[in-house]
Design a protein around this nucleic acid. Structure first.
Lengths: 207, 207, 207, 207
DNA sequence: GATGAATGAGTGTTCATTCAT
DNA sequence: TATGAATGAACACTCATTCAT
């Protein structure tokens, strides 16, 4: 469809410009020009500059959440799921760097803390990340493959912080190690910190 | 000095307003009004709005770096230094939340994109953080109290990412666990992931 | 006809929205949406946003003029016609408040400045109002039931101003008295100001 | 003062442009250019385009209210005050046509009925007009020089409507009679409608 | 006739910075 | 040193109108 083609062109262009210059420094007229559409067309399709941003946000995080859910669907042990999670996370971000950069760099800054309300769909998606991390840990706790000296939820929050912070510093150029290495390190250290040293309660594969 | 009193008023006010509304949403006229000075006075003292920000940045990070250096100066074992580091980091951020919020929330987006050059004094201070983390780990590797399956530098980067990400998510309201709990969790998990399970090469206290 | 049904829906919707928010604040897309038609359909039927307005204007003022002409057709004395006019005017406006509000509130500012040329059909209708007022007064002057110390035309202009201003202030919420009261007051004061105190030249009822 | 000179230049220019093209059609950049100042200066002094308008409004209506109050201060009989009021009103408007045109033509239209709240200073000034009209009538009722078959307040509303409507239609070009003539007609007809035909209760001059 | 996606000139407003006093 | 009035380029956004289908 022409419609989709134009929307897509706007999203692609905006994604690039946001990544290059930051959300605040990319102007709507610039995006329109680069996308080959009139400025009004931006507003016809997305309602506002924020609307473009939030569409990119949604698309990016949706794929991200789906990936984690897919891992959980495999029904491997908690330990194995955690290992797979570490590999997936850094791999996913590595493969979608541009989109992820925008999300990581620009999101919470321009939407003020207050505006970023608890009930918004975006906020719910962000909360869902911690929820999925929790499910991985809970599975390991249940099947005895993981050992947590702290509550599941709070450990999940810290785990997420590790991933988030490492990725963000990497994107900001403050970390030199390449993404694949970061993934392997995360897998190794997370397991050292969390894997049970005793034999699991249940057989290797959960039913 | 009157001069210093005015500068300090500006910094204090700016710090509060940046924290409340974000760097981009706090205007210079607003800062001047709230600080009880003329708008031009801001420019006499700090040259630009960015100048105010960078002064706050410097002050905040200087205390932070000094704190870590002080830890290293105690010459405890690597393992003990790492434990103390975890406690110090979250405690420090907790005690300077306002300043830190600005640094964590506003800094990178605003100055990072291109302009945040490798040679700048601020960049060097940021790099110094990883360097100090590395020294903690290197000490543990040398005295046998820590065990690193990956290079010191890269492990330091990940460690820093953990701290940075956890703190930032906390500041953005995406983490519920309170700061002291985060500190205890970091200490516990970092040691589980990095502490040597064998007896240390050297006696407990380095001479 | 489908055509007429659509036109009518557009006019009804536009009338409501103009009254609610003012001509300038009601958008064509909003009117189209509320009327259940496509935006382009507005242009097929009325050519422009102004076209919709002018159609409403014509419909409203046509009924108004017809009402006054009907009064004149009754061939009562000038005094009686003037009394009937006062009652009719406020009653008519009261019964068509929505339409009249638009005409009174939005018309002149929007089309008057320059563009509201002497020759336009709308201008002629507006001029016709004063003309009909003049005919009422002229009749009274002729039959001796009214007594005018000033020329008929100019008195008619002032009379019209009274009606127009009272109505407009009422619509703008600056007058508290209800419409029926305004009608009774107009009738009373107009007669006090204009009715002849001597016996009429002609018998009560004109042949 | 330079300050006042610039403000005044802006007000004078805006007044002219609003009168020429209407509030909505005069742009801020146009006003700034014509006034010989930067566009930002408009906002420095008046905060918004509306702010300029409201300043003009206040200045115009303040002189108007002061004029009526001065009449009331003379303590002549109600009848004489009413006659003086009629002459003053049309004379005042005639002498400040440009300013008055803006007020009459543009005011209630662009500030929506809802926004034009009861408590606003502007609304209070408008309400004060009717109040002063009432005081004129009340004086005449008290001293027996005026005779009102309807309540003072409502008669004042109608009187005001007469003045307002006549003036507005004149400004819109729908009335041909010149201002001085309108003043004389108002005086004559108002007295005919309201003056007592009996001897006044009190001597001619109120103490 | 009917549609509605696309248009783009135009708008009011912002705000970091300057500079004469 | 301190002031604050003045600046003006830049911005996100609006909306009546068009036209290919």
């Amino acid at each position: 469809m022409t419609d989709t083609a134009r929307s897509r062109a706007i999203l692609t262009t905006a994604s690039r410009l946001f990544a290059e210059k930051g959300y605040g420094n990319a102007t709507t007229s610039e995006i329109a020009r680069a996308a080959g559409v009139a400025e009004g067309t931006l507003y016809h399709h997305f309602g506002s500059k924020d609307g473009i941003f939030l569409t990119l946000f949604d698309e990016t995080i949706d794929g991200f959440l789906a990936g984690i859910e897919e891992l959980l669907g495999r029904r491997t042990t908690g330990r194995e799921t955690l290992a797979a999670l570490a590999r997936f996370l850094f791999d996913y971000v590595s493969r979608h760097q541009e989109r992820y950069l925008i999300l990581l760099r620009d999101f919470p800054v321009h939407l003020t803390v207050q505006q970023f309300a608890k009930g918004s769909p975006q906020r719910e998606k962000l909360d869902r990340v911690t929820e999925l991390f929790s499910r991985v840990l809970a599975r390991g706790k249940a099947d005895g493959t993981l050992e947590l000296p702290f509550p599941v939820r709070e450990t999940a929050e810290m785990l997420r912080g590790t991933f988030y912070g490492t990725t963000r510093l990497k994107m900001l150029g403050l970390i030199q190690a390449p993404f694949p290495r970061l993934g392997r390190m995360a897998e190794s250290y997370w397991l050292k910190a969390l894997a049970s040293r005793r034999a699991p309660k249940t057989p290797r594969r959960t039913p």
